[in-house]
Design a binder for these strands. Structure first.
Lengths: 212, 212, 212, 212
DNA sequence: TATGAATGAGGGTTCATTCAT
DNA sequence: GATGAATGAACCCTCATTCAT
């Protein structure tokens, strides 16, 4: 259940990928501006650079576009993070680095994140689980980071605490995207990153084993 | 700019209020189930207990309903919180109490919060500022609480830190509503409250003035 | 299962009947000219004298129109025949009268019969049985007529023969409608009726009991 | 006006015939299942075993397919009958044989007959005459049979009667195909043939010259 | 000759909004 | 004030047909 296949009439896999990329790019922009429901399939087709007929050669329903958009965003974010998190050393520094990285990705993909964030609930029962699973995988990355630190003796945390903190980090990352109307007035990205990591680590310092 | 007037054809203010309450009550339920866009004005009218014609005697457009719903939810939440926060004593205990209270309200009004949370973005440029302002007021409540603690010498925090923490608390409250699909599997409400307040206060302990 | 209810949004039963009559009248004409598939719902609405929106206040799908048309035609034909056949005396003369009457109705309702005849198969599995049942009822009328003659001692026919002849009469009636492109060149209605009844009765004369 | 040429881009006549045969075979099946209008050109191409592009190398419009199908069916039926009717001896026995044969062909080609029968009306004014002419030719076969009998002194019938009976036979043959939903429940093919020929001949017996 | 991606007119249907009663 | 029938713009999607390869 790793992917929900979206059926295409066109056979050439390469072409399908290319067209869908065009489609997603156009759709993200539109969804960001007007939301999924206020965007018409014709607009999506136009933004993608082809006709409405062609659009439907690559998807089955309008909702497929939303799914593809969400799916693609998660993939991009995941990919970006995976690279950095691969070298998870289990130190507080590497945790800090991971958080910083994540917040930066959230900033770069601000438009996409906003869209996904606001529109996931428009997915039907059919497609939703696939997307939520991906979200859990991303939260899972931070859980790993934290768990590594615990294993390493850098932190003393229960499983429940690990999961809670991972959720918090994840949501704070998204927050920078979806509450930017408020946050941008108060902080630069760097300030935001600094303040939040500081707070997180300050909280964690309580849970560090006492060293003499 | 405290209220955006929604025009009604009917003059009797009492009646207007009554009808709108019916309307909001029905709409919240519907929006929760199917979202704003998938809900029709006819359905709203029916759920409110009157005809489509009557509905339009009390609003101008479908979006007015959404605005009224959002507005009403914020009012309810604010009201609920105001009561408790009035007696803000500027101690860490009262802060903890405030957080606990807020999370509990978020749990009780889960449906409403979810709706508002998911659908604010459907408001047009016209109505959005009024709603966002209310949100800022709620964040402001936590800022006050924190500021009181600082004034009281219980905490040492910069203005920026205060605002950041207030935001975090607010979003973590919402989180219990909009990420409940994930959180409910991991925690009971009480556990969630305990874990989160613990983490927040742990973080803040770093910022407590050294007392000898 | 005598009627398949077609849902209407409008409550007023009288109005529903009135609008549907307009609708059916317009649709018959259009279906006759271009067939069910080539007729658009917009054309039907226009022919009926109201807007497309109004059309859909009285039906749910385009197919509903076809069902209503078929249903109405059968009802009209049945009604017309019932009157005449009520006084079925079980004589060959009354049989002859029945046939003549039926052929005349088929001529009068030529447009409707043609339409129904050609488009029934466009009905989905859902609606088809209701219509076919009505057709069997009409065939049944002729069976009754014949059976009466047998009971009366005017004819000696097996059940199978009765059913066969009833079918033949029915189809010959329709034939005048759907093969009129060929038959009209050869016969007037009266000639057609005369020739066919003559042939039928000639055939039946074989089955008359020998009277001395 | 014996054939309405359907234009093909491909020159090789042999190939044209081959491709069209594939096409017709696939189309008959599809038309039988879903009717002409509900069948797409893509489906026809696929059923025929080649691409949509290729399909259009051998026809000009979708309707051409229908014409080719109808045309081919008539040709097949005609051919089947011609063989048997060639040796028309002008006796009642040979008439009976002809009828039996025809009904059997109608049964064998049930699918095709049903299709043609239901879809001819979908032909445009342009192609219709060609098909109707073929139908008249088939009716004409029975006219010949009957006329032979008259010439032979086996029957005494007017021209009008001959034509009427020929029509009846023809329609009764089709009836076995298009009313099989009702008839199949009542009769086997053999019973049907027996009953119908019996009735026809019984009718004709009235018109036999009195022999002493 | 064969392919299949591209096109876009047009079809069925919905639904916010109005207005006569 | 209340009703609900009427409206039609606009939406999603299909599919016959074309044309570059």
């Amino acid at each position: 259940m790793n992917k929900r296949e979206v059926q295409a009439s066109v056979k050439d896999e390469r072409l399908v990928q290319k067209r869908r990329d065009q489609m997603i790019k156009g759709a993200v922009q539109l969804f960001k501006e007007k939301g999924f429901h206020r965007t018409t399939t014709r607009e999506i087709a136009k933004a993608a650079g082809f006709s409405i007929g062609t659009l439907y050669e690559y998807i089955r329903t309008k909702e497929d576009v939303l799914y593809l958009v969400c799916d693609s965003i998660y993939d991009h974010v995941s990919e970006r993070l995976q690279q950095d998190l691969e070298l998870k050393k289990g130190t507080l520094e590497s945790l800090q680095l991971g958080i910083t990285n994540f917040f930066q990705v959230m900033d770069e993909m601000q438009a996409e994140v906003l869209v996904m964030y606001q529109e996931v609930k428009s997915l039907t029962k059919d497609a939703l689980p696939y997307v939520l699973k991906k979200e859990m995988q991303m939260v899972g990355m931070f859980e790993s980071l934290l768990r590594k630190c615990v294993e390493n003796g850098e932190l003393v945390l229960s499983e429940k605490q690990i999961k809670m903190i991972a959720h918090n980090i994840f949501v704070q990352g998204q927050m920078w995207g979806f509450r930017r109307w408020a946050l941008r007035k108060l902080y630069t990205l760097d300030e935001y990153i600094e303040l939040q990591t500081e707070l997180i680590l300050a909280g964690l310092s309580q849970y560090q084993p006492q060293k003499e």
